[in-house]
Nucleic acid binder design. Structure first.
Lengths: 339, 339
DNA sequence: AAAGCTAATCTAAACGTTTCGGATGAGTCA
DNA sequence: TGACTCATCCGAAACGTTTAGATTAGCTTT
């Protein structure tokens, strides 16, 4: 910028004025300066600007697992709308590891991000401390951490799996295996709660041997399903609490020599683009990923612009059960039909 | 930092010295300063530091489509190893849109990223100009742009689809439809070339009505496949040049009332985690995503550390054909076997 | 014609670091 | 005792911006 100023024979202040349009400068100088800028090929240094202004125009984003298509989809729309608004996004993915998550958030904060979007791996005291110590707007996504003051956009998880479980019950399934995510997350807890409630509402007794923990990961879900399927009175259906785990579930079913949906029905959380084209066509609860991304982005942009000042908001969206054919009526119902 | 200095009754220079261990300071002062840091809860300002040192310890990353599981996977490992090395990553995804890509790269450069990893949507003159005007190390990934001086880690695309096509030919297929990516990309060109070569090597004449362009996107691939499958002498097999497009291919097959692999065989580029558990189990060429990510990260870290100074390197890795059952022998071969 | 006003431009401080060269003081040596 | 050497520590400039306030010049007003 100094070079530009010299080339145009003006002060740096004037250069700054024309670049930002922050003060009125005469047409001659404007022209001279713009010419100089072009000649030199000057680009203003965003770092210096950030230092002076106290804003970086970048927002930090941490997700528990970027490999998960659900997160990927919302990251894509977040990136899209934030970029359009002139913000860059710094992305971190911790492999559902809370320690690494905290470290990454600290790193983002040190880099003075203007805002923070977090799809938390979980919440520990440390996270609360870090988040409590900052003034940047935060929006939690997918999962919430109670105890942290922040906006959140989440799904009505309990309702969604309540509906899904109810659907399975209506098809005559009574022993429904449940492969759960970690109870360290709100989604893990809420989804399991939805399962409980649905059983309760249908008067089906809860059997604790039917729920196993897959921690939202394929490998863990595989083991969980193996246990589920090798126990004496095996479930006739399995619900997987997310998309990654359903693959583990299917692998277990295959490796045990069973098949879906003939021997065991499967329903899962999170939809796939290919779900209706490969077999079995998965019955799944779809999340409104685009809406989640857009609303999150809007929320944080509104905070950054000072358009919202009040206490934390919580947006909760609804999932939708996509009925396909990985879950079929239980044998008892089929017999009833033919009898 | 000023506050820390005051609290510890020393100069900022000394504080800086103990924080960075850049000079030797007496035990007493060190202790006082460390105590003050703890008391104040001081975190050094990375922006100011970046400005002074001319490095941001962040590296820019643009991919053509973050929604594509292949890119997602390599992004995940990139993020992982770069984070471990103390680097943050700024992520941009342009929807295979070259204009947006250039804009994003410019934005990253303005923010003074220390390095750039690019999975290009394509290369135009503009990109070459932007990239030519900078001194930061660049590594191209997956796709290369000739005319830009940069390291690259890519796949031996031609070889990979040569092998895949040859496999299909050996199974007796003679009319093999090819759903191609955009020829604006090196992957689009190289993969198509592999198809050509394989036909040539087997003495099968090339039929231009068998190749259609899907531009690496599901919707386009769907249309392409519809055309392919509704033409008079329809192909007995289809090769899809990437993962997104194979979904479009499968949808077209379904919508036309055919099925895979009974009526038409399918092989595609890029593997899926679920490929061996849903039916048809896709025969696909798997890319070594972890290796790609790790080598890319290593390459750029080496450049940043000045461990490599010589001219651009090009690492080319090999794909692997995962034979499953979405591609079965052609009817003619089956008859031959039973005859 | 002096004073006041306005519009355009500039000077210089500030943002929070790093780092170079210098200052200080104690110990060593002749 | 004076000079010299270390070991520590500090002052201040610099990184490239932004911006409040000062300055200047040209007009208007009385």
């Amino acid at each position: 910028m100094l070079h530009v100023a010299e080339a145009a024979r003006v002060s740096v202040a004037t250069v700054s004025a024309v670049i930002n349009g922050t003060a009125i400068v005469s047409p001659e100088l404007t022209a001279r300066i713009e010419a100089a800028i072009r000649d030199i090929g000057y680009k203003r240094n965003a770092i210096a600007r950030s230092l002076k202004m106290g804003k970086t125009r970048t927002i930090g984003l941490t997700v528990a697992d970027i490999t998960n298509p659900f997160f990927t989809d919302v990251v894509a729309v977040l990136q899209e709308v934030l970029h359009r608004a002139g913000y860059a996004v710094m992305l971190c993915s911790n492999d559902e590891d809370m320690e690494m998550q905290d470290e990454q958030i600290q790193l983002l904060l040190d880099r003075m991000v203007d805002g923070l979007i977090i799809a938390p791996a979980g919440d520990d005291a440390n996270l609360k401390r870090i988040l409590g110590g900052t003034k940047v707007p935060i929006v939690l996504i997918d999962r919430i951490c109670d105890g942290v003051e922040a906006d959140a956009v989440i799904l009505d998880n309990q309702r969604a799996v309540f509906d899904a479980t109810t659907y399975m019950l209506q098809l005559g399934h009574r022993r429904i295996g449940y492969v759960s995510g970690s109870l360290d997350t709100s989604t893990g807890r809420d989804r399991l709660e939805g399962y409980h409630r649905a059983l309760e509402a249908s008067g089906v007794p809860f059997d604790e041997t039917l729920v196993r923990f897959g921690n939202f990961r394929e490998a863990d879900a595989y083991n969980a399903s193996m246990q589920l399927l090798t126990q004496p009175d095996r479930p006739s259906a399995i619900f997987s609490a997310n998309n990654l785990m359903v693959i583990g579930v299917m692998k277990a079913i295959r490796d045990i020599g069973l098949s879906c949906p003939e021997d065991v029905s499967v329903v899962c959380f999170d939809d796939f683009p290919w779900a209706d084209v490969f077999r079995p066509q998965l019955t799944a609860v779809a999340q409104p990923v685009r809406a989640i991304g857009e609303q999150t982005a809007q929320l944080i942009l509104d905070r950054l612009a000072g358009r919202i000042e009040d206490e934390p908001r919580r947006l909760v969206l609804q999932g939708r059960l996509m009925i396909r054919n990985s879950c079929r009526p239980h044998a008892s119902l089929l017999q009833g039909a033919t009898a």
